[in-house]
């Protein structure tokens, strides 16, 4: 029962985080908040990927003095490697987005997209 709770709270939590982010991207009007929401979506999907590779009662995929051989059970290393990549890519996108926000703010002196021609939707 407890395992069930743990597993599904990871899946459910990360999916919910993605949708909180999506809702934020769609509903917020402040450009910085939209980027924050995008960051939340990134975190959510990263968490979900790692959770999909989780194996119950397994070890972190490192062979060291604690787990001296690969006979022990390990969690799946591939999603972890993917998530490493995805975190860095997400940060790169957010940083570029913030630079754009700063430039747009210079021009319009506002962060509100409904006051910016070309960003209204």
């Amino acid at each position: 029962m407890l395992n069930f709770l743990e597993e599904w709270s990871f899946f459910g939590g990360s999916i919910l985080l993605i949708f909180i982010g999506l809702y934020g991207v769609l509903s917020r009007k402040n450009m910085i908040k939209i980027l924050i929401s995008l960051g939340l979506m990134d975190t959510g999907v990263n968490l979900l990927l790692v959770a999909l590779g989780y194996v119950e009662a397994a070890n972190a995929p490192i062979i060291n003095s604690v787990n001296p051989s690969n006979a022990a059970a390990f969690v799946d290393p591939i999603p972890q490697a993917l998530v490493l990549t995805s975190i860095v890519i997400g940060t790169a996108v957010l940083a570029l987005g913030l630079a754009l926000v700063m430039k747009i703010y210079d021009k319009y002196s506002t962060l509100n997209i409904s006051e910016i021609r070309g960003l209204k939707w």
Partner: peptide, 15 residues
């Protein structure tokens, strides 16, 4: 020894 490292920097280093 760190399998994640061997995935990131060897098996899937192109990514």
């Amino acid at each position: 020894a760190n399998i994640v490292t061997s995935v990131v920097a060897n098996y899937r280093s192109f990514d």
